[in-house]
Design a protein around this nucleic acid. Structure first.
Lengths: 125, 125
DNA sequence: GTCGTTGCAAAGCGTTTGCAGCCTA
DNA sequence: TAGGCTGCAAACGCTTTGCAACGAC
């Protein structure tokens, strides 16, 4: 599908490896700006889509938020959404016994957990 | 703010008490159609907004989904999203020890848990 | 009869698509 | 050089807003 490694595509990849947290399309644009000042939002959307298709990125959906994306090679984890700065951070670990919550007759496949509060930088202020 | 109890507003209220689950705007339109066949989507949005403002409804945000709404007077709970029929159901109970997941320096305020799978009707097929 | 509310249509906003020119291979 | 990729602008789908007509009080 994607066959060429362009400046723009490289800048988008580096934005993710540098950030180390899930990025929304407009955050990608900002993060990649030093490497690719003329990068357009349409190019961000197109490259993100192909990077997800080829398994380099995965989609991170949080309640009430536009989709973000992060490197696909990190394992099962959840997310912390800072309500002050708006950034999203990865959280390690998971809780057990979610199956106990499911009503009789329902079949559980997977789950999402989102934590809300203040990140270390925002809490320190 | 809202001063009049119109046919449309009554139909929207009844849609929620009848459904007993979170409803998205288009689901409200369908559910209220028997009571208010000419109901317009703009009216749904305006009434939902005012019902949230006055505390009769609350917003239910699920990952990757448009906002839904449900009666505000039900307590803390989470949601089950059926990946077959697309409907959302309330789940009672909650897990503990989420605080243990939070990194040092972060402050936890609240959380969302979303379960995915098949509801009883879809699982029975 | 007043004036808040409704329904339509236009405006917004974020995302996707069409197309001519650019640039990687 | 060829053809995939980019950037702009138009198209889209969902939500919000403007406005004239309607209807609750």
């Amino acid at each position: 599908m994607i066959e060429r490694e362009t400046q723009q595509r490289r800048a988008i990849r580096e934005a993710f490896t540098r950030a180390g947290r899930p990025l929304a399309p407009h955050e990608i644009l900002e993060e990649a700006n030093p490497d690719a000042p003329t990068l357009g939002i349409a190019t961000v959307y197109r490259n993100v889509k192909s990077l997800v298709d080829e398994g380099w990125l995965k989609t991170v959906e949080l309640p009430g938020q536009p989709p973000r994306y992060e490197l696909a090679d990190i394992g099962h984890h959840h997310h912390f959404h800072c309500t002050t700065c708006g950034k999203v951070f990865d959280i390690e670990g998971c809780v057990g016994k979610l199956g106990a919550l499911v009503p009789r007759g329902y079949e559980l496949d997977s789950h999402d957990i989102t934590l809300y509060g203040r990140c270390d930088k925002c809490a320190a202020r």
